[in-house]
């Protein structure tokens, strides 16, 4: 039951991932990686911004320290998400299961999982499978076929992931003034990081961390939540 629900919730993530990872596969192949190498990066990393940065370093022949630091910085947001998710999982979600299923913490999977009241092991497993297949499959297709997909389809699929994000935060913002405020602060902050001189030099992964910390901290200060509210998501 939970597994099936997870699978179903994973479909839009899978579609979005597929379209985004085709582009990654094309970039990797153009940069001189084999299809197997491109596929392995996606299968073992399952992250967009981090992989893009890592790929650039690999192609440029950078150092291992450089690649380690880039991943640490860009993917540090997953640590924050992991802590947040650790408060939502049920009792059966013991350490060994966390070590396996924790691999699947991505922006999108986290977003969907955190929309649940309680996250069970079957739900998390079901939720993770299709996106992993979509992400790896898209990379493979991109690496093998290059730019064969019509541009108009790629363009349309480009908004899929964002559409999903919107489906998570808009209903919550509609219900609670506090969430609306947090969303507003995050949007203003990320726009500043995108357009303002100096600030726009900051990498996108790090920019997301900064905006998240500012907006969530502002929310926690302005609208602290009572104990019983905190699990009624």
């Amino acid at each position: 039951m939970d597994f099936k629900k997870g699978l179903r919730d994973g479909i839009p993530i899978c579609l979005g991932y597929f379209s985004v990872s085709v582009a990654f596969g094309v970039t990797a192949a153009t940069g001189g990686l084999s299809w197997l190498e491109a596929l392995m990066i996606s299968l073992f990393n399952l992250t967009s911004a981090g992989q893009k940065a890592g790929l650039d370093i690999i192609i440029a022949g950078g150092s291992l320290i450089e690649i380690a630091l880039s991943q640490l910085l860009i993917n540090a947001r997953y640590a924050l998400m992991g802590i947040s998710l650790s408060q939502k999982v049920d009792k059966k979600f013991t350490s060994p299961f966390r070590m396996v299923l924790g691999f699947a913490i991505t922006d999108e999977i986290f977003a969907v999982a955190s929309g649940q009241k309680v996250v069970s092991r079957p739900y998390m497993a079901g939720l993770a499978i299709l996106p992993i297949i979509g992400w790896s499959g898209g990379t493979l297709v991109g690496a093998l076929l290059g730019g064969i997909m019509p541009e108009i389809i790629q363009s349309a699929l480009g908004v899929a992931l964002y559409g999903m994000f919107i489906a998570v935060f808009v209903p919550a913002a509609k219900q609670e003034k506090s969430v609306l405020c947090v969303v507003g602060i995050a949007v203003i902050c990320s726009s500043m990081m995108y357009y303002m001189p100096y600030l726009k030099e900051i990498s996108s992964g790090f920019a997301v961390i900064i905006c998240t910390v500012i907006a969530a901290a502002a929310g926690a200060i302005l609208f602290p939540r009572e104990e019983e509210e905190s699990d009624a998501v």
Partner: peptide, 17 residues
């Protein structure tokens, strides 16, 4: 707790726009 509650919404909004 409040910070963690708002985290997903902040992350998603910042990544979307």
């Amino acid at each position: 707790n409040s910070f963690l509650y708002y985290t997903p919404y902040a992350v998603l909004a910042a990544m979307t726009f």
